[in-house]
Amino acid sequence: MPTSWRDAFDLGDREIPVGPEPEGREGVFSRLRQGLSRSRKALGAELGSSLTAGIDDGTWESLEEALILADVGAPTTAAVVRRLEDEYEAGDVTGGERLRERLIELLAETASPSADPRIRLGADPAVLMVVGVNGTGKTTTIGKIAWHLQQELGLDVVVGAADTYRAAAVEQLTEWAERAGCQIVRGTEGGDPGAVAFDAVEAARARGSDVVICDTAGRLHTKGNLMEELSKVRRVIAKQLPDAPHETLVVIDATTGQNGVRQAQEFSRSVAVTGAVLTKLDGSAKGGVALAIASELGIPVKLIGIGESLEDLRPFDSEQFARALLAE
């Protein structure tokens, strides 16, 4: 599991200068737990005592309740709990602490279905496209990724402001580009997003940049014409660079409920999503929908957002995440 930014990316043959790691594993976990404290208190204690006391039907029920309350959703919850129950009945796991650890393992497995969850940035330049519904935090996420790549890993980054729809979206990304010290390619408000994406990739190739990150306008996954526009942006990028985009990330707000699965599914259908970014985990929402997305669609979570500062965008660690879902 990647716990540092260096480990979160597959950078191909690039030489990365070794620098100090800004925040260790402990730090992230405690912040994640801190963020999750409110609802955790409500159900964590109950769940803990029920798992360590005698195992009966009530145990499985309270387990289901905890997962449903974390937005894991009914089908995935049922699947995980049934598997745990089966293993318990078969005598593979005993009660108490062992059961709890096994549950965390199962949840972590569910959250991370692929063998290599790294973000592939080996190509030259590598193109990263970011999509999602309105208000999930796409532009902020891009700003933070750009900062980490440019400042921490010393890569040369170009961001493409292809959100030409929302008022002042370009200004927002421009501010982020200034903070990150990276290049920005902008279009005009109301202009063609495909043209901006094309220009961004072209600029990166001309400059010999390492990574292009392409922002897109937030859109509801039910709007057929807007989803078609998104596929077009993807096609335009592929025209510039045959294998691009190398990664397409869908940004999901952790407060989202079961609709998140539909979002990921529809975005995947139109732009072949390769991973999810789970944002706003610093509230009391636990982001369990990420488990449903991973289990039902096989889309792994690659990054999480646990706060507003730059360091608060982190590589995803499925075990930490599973622990935080159930932590006391």
Partner: peptide, 12 residues
């Protein structure tokens, strides 16, 4: 309030 909000809507 976002119509897509999940279980956490209550806490919010």
């Amino acid at each position: 309030l976002d119509a897509m909000t999940g279980q956490d809507a209550v806490n919010v």
